[in-house]
Design a protein around this nucleic acid. Structure first.
Lengths: 180, 180
DNA sequence: CCCACCTATATCTGAATTGATATAGTTTCG
DNA sequence: CGAAACTATATCAATTCAGATATAGGTGGG
C-alpha cells in the first residue's frame, strides 16, 4: 500500500508526468521501492480520484499530449500522515541472500562461485547508486543508507566466503526446535 | 518465483509438515523471505505435482492427520540448480526506509520522532533475530548477515538523526535531470 | 530515408501475496 | 471443567506485482 505514497512524495518535490515518476523510481528510489509503469498509471488515477493530485493535460501543437500531475494540499497532508505513521516490519524479500542459506546443497567450488557471483551483483548495484544524480536532501540520505547497507552485506559475504570453502562441519542430522 | 525453492531448501534439511515450514519461515527465514500459510500449502502441492517432494500422510489413532513432505532426488537437483543460478537484482521493498526519503514533509520535531520510531523497530528486529534458535550452518550465516545489515542501517540512522534537526538547507526548487 | 532509441501513456494477463476465515483436535494452566 | 493457546490443514477474496504488448510522435546518426 505504499506506492501511492511514494508517488505523492516525489510529487511533493516537483509536478511530474507518469513517465518522470517511473524514471525517478527506476533510478533513485529503486533501492527502497520499485514499480513498473503498469502500476504507476493506475496509482496516479487513484490518487486523482482521492483528490491528492491534480491533473493538467498539456497538449502542445507539436508532439503528443503529456499528463502533468501536481500534488494538492490534501495530498501533502496525506503524505505527512504516512511519513509519521509507524512503519510495518520490513517485508524481507531478498532472493540472492535466500540462496546463500542453502549453500550446503553445493560443492565447495560451486559455493565459492555462487558467493562471488552474488557479491558482484551487489558491487554493481553499489556502483550504480554511487553514480546517481544529485537528489533532494533526504532522498540523498536514503541513498547513502542503501549504499552502506549493501557494503555491509559485502563485508559479511567476504567472511562467509572464507568459511564456505571449509568442509561441512559435523552437524546433528535434524534441527527440530520441538519434539512431538 | 522463489518461495517453492526456499521450501525445497528447508525440506533438504528435514522432512517437514506445512506447519513446520510456516513456522521456520516466520521465525528464522523471515529476514530474507516470508510467506503466509495461504501460499505454503498451494506451493507444496505444486512441488508435489512437479515431483520435487513426496507426501506421506500420517494418520495416528489419536489426533488429526499430518502431511509430511520429503524432498526427492529431483528436488535436490532443482534446489542445486536454483542456488547456483545468478540472482536477480534485489527487489527493494522497504517501507520504513522509503518514508525517510520524504522527511522534508515534516517539522523538525516530527522528523526526530519518525527516525527514532523507525530505529526502535529495527532494534526490536535485531533482538528477535539474536534470540533465535540454533540453525544449520549457512542458515545461521545468513541470519548473521541479516543482523549486520540491520545494525548498519541503525548506524546510518544515527547519522541521519544528527542532521535531521538542522533547518532545511537552501536547495534549488526543482531537481529535473533533464530539461525539455 | 531508415533505423534505432527515447519520450509518453495505457492496458492485459497471469502470478504472487496478503489477510481473513473455517475447521478441528490437543495441551496446558488455573 | 473451562478458557486459552497451540497444532494443523485449507480456502477465499482482494490486492499487488511483473512482464508483455500497443500506440505514436520525436530525435539523432549513418
Amino acid at each position: 500500500m505504499s506506492l501511492p505514497h511514494v508517488l505523492l512524495g516525489l510529487l511533493s518535490e516537483n509536478p511530474s508526468t507518469g513517465y518522470d515518476l517511473a524514471h525517478a523510481l527506476a533510478t533513485d528510489v529503486a533501492p527502497v521501492w520499485r514499480a513498473e509503469t503498469s502500476q504507476i498509471y493506475p496509482a496516479l488515477a487513484r490518487l486523482r480520484r482521492a483528490g491528492f493530485v491534480l491533473l493538467r493535460v498539456l497538449a502542445p501543437q507539436r508532439g503528443p499530449r503529456r499528463n502533468l500531475y501536481r500534488i494538492t494540499a490534501a495530498g501533502r497532508r496525506e503524505l505527512r500522515r504516512w511519513v509519521c505513521e509507524p512503519a510495518p516490519p520490513p517485508r524481507g524479500k531478498d532472493e540472492g541472500l535466500a540462496r546463500m542459506a542453502f549453500l550446503d546443497a553445493l560443492s565447495l567450488e560451486e559455493r565459492r562461485r555462487a558467493i562471488l557471483q552474488y557479491d558482484r551483483g551487489l558491487a554493481e548495484e553499489v556502483r550504480r547508486l554511487k553514480a546517481g544524480t544529485p537528489l533532494p536532501r533526504f532522498r540523498r540520505e536514503v541513498r547513502r543508507v542503501a549504499i552502506e547497507r549493501l557494503e555491509s552485506m559485502r563485508r559479511s559475504l567476504r567472511i562467509l566466503l572464507a568459511s564456505a570453502g571449509t568442509p561441512p562441519a559435523a552437524l546433528p542430522a535434524r534441527f527440530d526446535d520441538k519434539k512431538k
